[in-house]
Structure formats: C-alpha cells, structure tokens
Write a protein that binds this DNA or RNA. Sequence first.
DNA 1: TGCCATACCAGAAACGTTTTTGGAAAATCG
DNA 2: CGATTTTCCAAAAACGTTTCTGGTATGGCA
Lengths: 347, 347
Amino acid sequence: MTERKRVTILDVSRATGLALSTVSNALAGKNHVSEETRATVLEAATRLGYRASTVARALRMQRSFTIGVLVADVANPSSPDFVRGVEDVAIREKCTLLLSNTDGDEERQLLHMRTLLDRQVDGMVLISQHVSSPAVRALLDASTPFVLIQRRNPLFPDDYVGSDNVIGVSEAINHLHALKHRRIGFVRGPSDSSTAGERLETFLAEAKRLRLKVDDELVFKGDYGFETGVAAGRHFLRLRRPPTAIMGSSDINALGVMEAALESGLSIPGQLSVVGLDDIALASFRAINLTTIHLQKRAMGAAAADLLIERIRQPDRTPQELIFPTRLVVRGSTAAPALPEAPRLRA
Amino acid sequence: MTERKRVTILDVSRATGLALSTVSNALAGKNHVSEETRATVLEAATRLGYRASTVARALRMQRSFTIGVLVADVANPSSPDFVRGVEDVAIREKCTLLLSNTDGDEERQLLHMRTLLDRQVDGMVLISQHVSSPAVRALLDASTPFVLIQRRNPLFPDDYVGSDNVIGVSEAINHLHALKHRRIGFVRGPSDSSTAGERLETFLAEAKRLRLKVDDELVFKGDYGFETGVAAGRHFLRLRRPPTAIMGSSDINALGVMEAALESGLSIPGQLSVVGLDDIALASFRAINLTTIHLQKRAMGAAAADLLIERIRQPDRTPQELIFPTRLVVRGSTAAPALPEAPRLRA
DNA sequence: TGCCATACCAGAAACGTTTTTGGAAAATCG
DNA sequence: CGATTTTCCAAAAACGTTTCTGGTATGGCA
C-alpha cells in the first residue's frame, strides 16, 4: 500500500554524514571504525529501519547465503527430518534454504538443479537423488559444492552421508529369524539407489548365512512409496507359499504392506510380521506400532550440511563420507509366525 | 574443482560481436530483434553454456522471482500438501520457493519474515502463522504482498484462504449425534488461531442446537500437535464422566487421542470414537482408518498462490477471501458408543 | 617544531543484469 | 531524390552492496 521506497545504505550514509564505505564497515563490524562512529551508524540504521539487501550483497560478494535442498518427496514423513537437520546448521550459518521436490524424477531434478545454479546457491544437498547420469554429473561438476545423502555412485568420490545398511538390515533379519520366520519377503527401493542396493545385498547375504532360501519371488522391486508397499504386499500374499514376514524399504512401504495384509483380512503381527525402515514418528504410535530400523535422519541432515559448509570454505578438501549407524527398534508389528510354515492364504 | 568463471551475458556479447543490450533483448524475446540475430545469440548462448544470473536480474528488476512460504511445522503431514499447492503455481510462474519452519513460535516467525524481506521475495504465503501482533503487522505492512492461509484476523482485510469450518464440524458432530453419542470432547487448536476459534464456535453452537451439554471440561485447549492429542485424550478419559467421542483439531491430534485411548486399553471405535480434521493420506490407511473432516489442502495452497500472484501484479486490488468447502469422511474410528452412557474408565 | 606512523574515512570500481536513450542504416513516402 | 519513418543496434545508467585504493587528520616521538 504505502509506496515506501527501500531504505538503502546510501540513506544511512547521508543521514549520518559518513561515507558509504564507513557505514558498510561499521555495519559489518570490520576494520578500524571508532566505537563512536559505529554507534552513530547503528543508531541511524535502526532509526531509518535499514536492512541490507541480500540480493545486492549476493551479487557483489558472489555468495548468496543460500543452500539448495533437493528432496524426492516431502510428503514422505522421513524427508522433513533430513531437511530439519540441514535447516539447523543453515540457521547457524545464517543461510536460507531453497527447497525443491523432485518426485524422484530425473527431469524434474535437472530442472531444479539448474534453477539452484542460476540462483548461485552456495551449495546444495541432494537427498536420495539421481547421481550417476551424464546430465546430472555435468551439473554437479559445475563447481558448486554439493553433498549427497542416501544415494551415491561409488565411482565418484563425492561428499556423502549415508546410513549403515548392514547393521540395521541384518539385525532385522536376525530378529525375524529368531522368531522362527523362515520365509521373508523383501521390498527393494529404487533400482538406481545405492542405499537400496546395499540393503538388498545385506539381506541376501545374511539370509544365506542363516540358510534361508530367498527365491526371486521374495524380492519385490519398487520405490519408497505407499503404493509400492501395497503392491508388494499383494504380490507376496498371493504367492503359493507366501512369506510369514515382510521387510519394507521404508516405513511408508511397510504401511503399504500392512494395508495389503489388512485388506486380505490378515492380522498383524498374528498372521504376518512387518518391519519398516526409517522410524518415522508415526511408527511409534500405538495405532501403528511398527517394528523398524531406526535412521538418524536429522543428524544425517545436519552432518551433510556441515560437510557442505566445510567444502564451501575449502573447495579442494578431499571428499568425505559419513556413515551413520542404524538400529532395529522392535515394536508390535513382528511376532512369531502362526505356524512353522505359513498357511496358504489367498486374497 | 575446475576453477571455471561464470559465463556472463558480456561473453555472449563478445562472442557474437553484438551489443550487450541486443543480446539481452534477444534472450528475453523482446522488442524488434531480427530472427537471424536472435538465432545467432541463442546459438552462442547455448554453445557457451550461458545462464542468466538470477541475482543480478533480481537486483536490476527489483523482483526476485521468489516466493516465501512460512509453515508452522513441516513435520505435520498436512503442511506439505499446502506447500505443494503453492509450488504448483510457483513453477507455473517460474518462481522458486523459500520455505521456512516457524514451529508456531512468533519470534521465529518474525526472524524468518525479516529474512524473506531482506531477500526481496516477490511475496509470501503464511500458513497458520501469527497475524495480529504489532510486530507481525509492522512487517506485513512493509508493502511486500502476502496471503494468509488458515489463520487471519478479521480486523485486517488481508487476502485470505481458509476452509469452511461450519460445514465440516457440524457434519461431524451430527454424525456423532446420529450414532447416539451424547458426550463429546473437543480439542481446540492454538488460542490465537482464527480457524480454531471458528471451529469451536461451530461445535458449541451445533451442540446447543442438538441439546448436548458441553461443560468446560469437554473442551481441551492446545495446538495441532500429537502431544496435545495425547494430553487431551488422557484428560478426557480421566473425567468422572468421560466423553464417548472426541473430536481432534487435526488428524495428528486425533492420533494423539487414539494413543491415549490405546494406552488406557480402550478400543476404537468400540469404546471410544475419534474424529480428526485434515484428512492426511495416513487417515485413509486401514491401519489408522480415521473418520475425519477433509480439507482441500493442495487446492487451498494453489489458490493462495494465485491470489498472491494477482496481488503482485496489481498491488491495489481489493483483498479477497476464499473459503473452501470441507466434508466429513466417515471411516472406521467412529461407531455407536458401547452404552447409552459411557462406562466409567480410569487410566 | 617537524616527521612519520597510525587510525580512520572518502571515492570509486565492481558484481551481471535490464532498460532507457540515442543513433545509424535501411526502407518508405512525398 | 530528399525527408521521414521504421528497424535495429550501441552505449550508458541503474539496482545496492562490498572492497580496494588512496588520502587526511591526529597523535607520538625525536
């Protein structure tokens, strides 16, 4: 409404009768500016309501104090946790977050990456994004610092924050094995996700060690979404010899499996055990009560942001990888199977 | 790594031998630039990998192509839905989103608002934020366009997008009444939320119409969070005459109530009916199966963003308010009470 | 009293755009 | 063929900072 013009540093300069540069120095707390001068400047600045233009500063300093964050799906409750971690250090570093959804789609990811680069973000955090294709690599090599979370390509020595998939998954399978489950279904995450791959490998290796047979039909390929969980659940339950337990690639995945089980009239954990992965807040609610593998999402987000800050400060630092431990949280969605061998059930 | 310098419009100018302004015009598709010249420019631009600096443009045009979004809590699954709606139109308008969490805390909100203003966002969308305090109003009056979602102060004629709280809430209470519930607990959202206030008023009015007695102990005050739901549930269930049904101020709220009920060993809906508000994706999962009031969150977000764009284009347009209808979605968390009068239960 | 170092301040350049203004060449019209 | 319009292009200003370079008092010291 009130057609106010922006009050600039020049106004402060004029108001105080001091030079532009002096005002700038005084405000930045730099160099040798007498306390008296500084006080004068500060007083005038607040009196006039002066606020420095971040965009002018960004142009001059070639630094935008902005961090870009790419996330596959904010709707998945685990995403905000990671973002929160990034936000924690962003605030500490006086940076702002530019957050974008890619829906796991590479085109969208490329689009958003270009936008971030155009905006001259100081760096970016890529959470479960595509990291291998030539197009993506080209953008990553654009000399803007970046850190990867939960998905990488070992061929490229990037800064990376991930979770220890071996511990969590093997704990989970051993838990199920101890409960006397002998047929376990596994939902595999996105095919180009390093994390999803590691988890499957661990699962297969551990199954072998435990002398569990894992035929192909016991591995369902999809993504981290609910629909994949539902589809996987339906698939598994329709098998001639359905598994007595199913491990999801995410909690949301596991909820999808539950959905399929419930729609078939199966009770959990009575007739089917389900284990998730993420440990979203929901998982601990009694209405859900999901046995799952806990990930330190917020800490991982913060660690990634810290790594990013380091790299921004020191672009030639050798890349680091940080692997966070995981642990199984046993809740109510797992129990001993009803029979040594699961009964045949049809949807 | 590769210490590349940014390729600027000047480089394109030099490469083509054309003037800066000509290149700019050609790229912007402006004025009268011959097709041939334009082709030359475009070719050179892509060949050199030129990308315009958004920050330089922002400084010059006094327009950042950025929209700030303030949200109370991204972790609440209803937030991303609103944001998604805003994002939809932001992409259409070639704007980027600057998203911040305020945790419902006014100080944090002020901090983030100032940051957004410093960054010269073209406008902002405030979802369930504080809108009345002098400090907030001062910032809102800073002549940067804004739109409110779900919380406003009728004293100020702001652009506003809300939901029809009358329909939804009265549908819900009538549903419960029809099921023969006579004592209904109500969880009230944040005390300074207009939406929460309207809902309570509707609840009380409709209860009166139905000749239901609503003593003070049947209204619990809190926020939209899970903990409030748990506290409310415990409070209600500890009453001498506990309600047979409880309405939450959000789905997460309702989940909290469920939590409290389950921890007391009550079954839902057998011994307690629960209704939520939001209709988050989770609510429809069989494991939850929550009767709730549906809100068109994404559409509301998009509508707010549209309003914002309009106001940016036309700052003096008279403020509009858009109210979206709501409707009750009956699922499995509501049923007839076990007894005409609820049995006495102690936690 | 004169010189030098120090402490502070002023002016100007630079960041990469868009936009305005002006000007030259080409085309049209009288 | 000259004048006027049209079409395009060149130069320069502006956006609001930070920072570099240089300069002027002021104080201390000889």
